[in-house]
């Protein structure tokens, strides 16, 4: 593995639902903060859209602004999921970067 993914996914199956939690490493800069050394404004850099799919079917699409915290965390609950199901989370930011991670429910 050359580079660690920016996304971490954890899932836990309960009797009536499956909890999926995700943590993304991202600065989420608002464009309002100043660099402490140079005093210049740090340009905006934030995730604009995030998608969450289960077994290839889109479950949720999120449109985000920079009001979301640095290193964003999200959680979702699937009504029914089996062990071995795939969950895919992907994001795209305003500078054109993106990342995707596939996770298998235990």
């Amino acid at each position: 593995m050359a580079k660690r993914s920016s996304i971490k996914i954890r899932s836990k199956r309960f009797a009536d639902h499956t909890l999926v939690r995700t943590l993304i490493a991202h600065p989420m800069e608002t464009g309002l903060n100043k660099d402490k050394d140079t005093g210049e404004l740090i340009p905006e850099h934030y995730i604009q859209s995030l998608t969450f799919s289960h077994n290839g079917k889109l479950m949720s699409e999120c449109h985000l602004g920079f009001g979301i915290s640095k290193n964003p965390f999200f959680s979702f609950k699937l009504k029914s999921a089996q062990a071995g199901d795939t969950v895919v989370i992907s994001w795209q930011d305003n500078l054109g970067y993106s990342d995707t991670l596939e996770h298998h429910i235990q």
Partner: peptide, 19 residues
């Protein structure tokens, strides 16, 4: 802050962190 679409297969449950 954000908007989320929710498929029928998802429970109405969203966790997030915002500023």
């Amino acid at each position: 802050i954000a908007k989320f679409s929710i498929a029928p297969e998802l429970e109405t449950f969203i966790g997030a962190r915002f500023k």
